[in-house]
């Protein structure tokens, strides 16, 4: 995936190493997300073909598509954060300069970090419950639920860690 950050601004040492590691991880999950996204599209086409051309029943396609596309959206989110793609209102911070601006940006990042960390925690709770309870989706296909939720847990965890990297990047 393309990315907007120039490596020249990335500091060295441990901090720099962490930022580079996170960027690499976020890019890697973006590839995974793209693959899941395409898989969802292909399966919908397969479903339309089977149902309307062959006139046969479809059982697993709807659910598979929902889970793969939802997974793609959550696994893609750290990459979108890294490339500044989550829309924000920056009129006020942009009109400031110096320390006030830096503090405001830091505050915004901390809020984002806090929410993502909470989401990551809650996602792992959901995965653990679905796993221990042996929960399924309750449909004809009836697959186990935890693999569908796992990408949200992984995605939001990476998103949280990527936020740390963004805060480090902004502060040096």
């Amino acid at each position: 995936m393309e990315h907007s950050h120039t490596d020249a601004t990335t500091p060295g040492g441990l901090v720099g190493g962490y930022i580079r590691l996170m960027d690499r991880l976020s890019r890697a999950t973006a590839y995974l997300a793209a693959a899941l996204f395409i898989a969802g599209v292909v399966v919908v086409c397969q479903m339309v073909f089977v149902r309307y051309i062959l006139g046969m029943s479809t059982s697993w396609q709807t659910e598979f598509t929902v889970f793969s596309v939802t997974a793609a959206m959550l696994l893609g989110s750290p990459y979108v954060l890294m490339t500044g793609g989550h829309v924000a209102v920056t009129v006020l911070p942009d009109s400031l300069s110096g320390l006030p601006r830096r503090l405001m940006r830091l505050a915004a990042s901390l809020v984002g970090f806090g929410f993502c960390a909470a989401l990551a925690y809650a996602s792992w709770v959901y995965v653990a419950e679905a796993w221990h309870g042996g929960w399924t989706t309750g449909t004809v296909w009836n697959p186990p639920l935890w693999p569908a939720v796992l990408p949200m847990a992984v995605g939001s965890t990476l998103l949280t860690l990527q936020y740390v990297a963004e805060i480090m990047r902004g502060e040096v």
């Binding site: 954060l81 989550h86 829309v87 924000a88 209102v89 920056t90 006020l92 911070p93 405001m104 940006r105 505050a107 915004a108 809020v111 984002g112 806090g114 929410f115 993502c116 909470a118 989401l119």
Partner: peptide, 18 residues
């Protein structure tokens, strides 16, 4: 407040709700 300081909209909405 959260939106004005530049928190991404999705995280501001989610954070306030939570």
């Amino acid at each position: 407040v959260l939106m004005a300081i530049g928190t991404p909209i999705a995280f501001a909405l989610g954070g306030v709700s939570l």
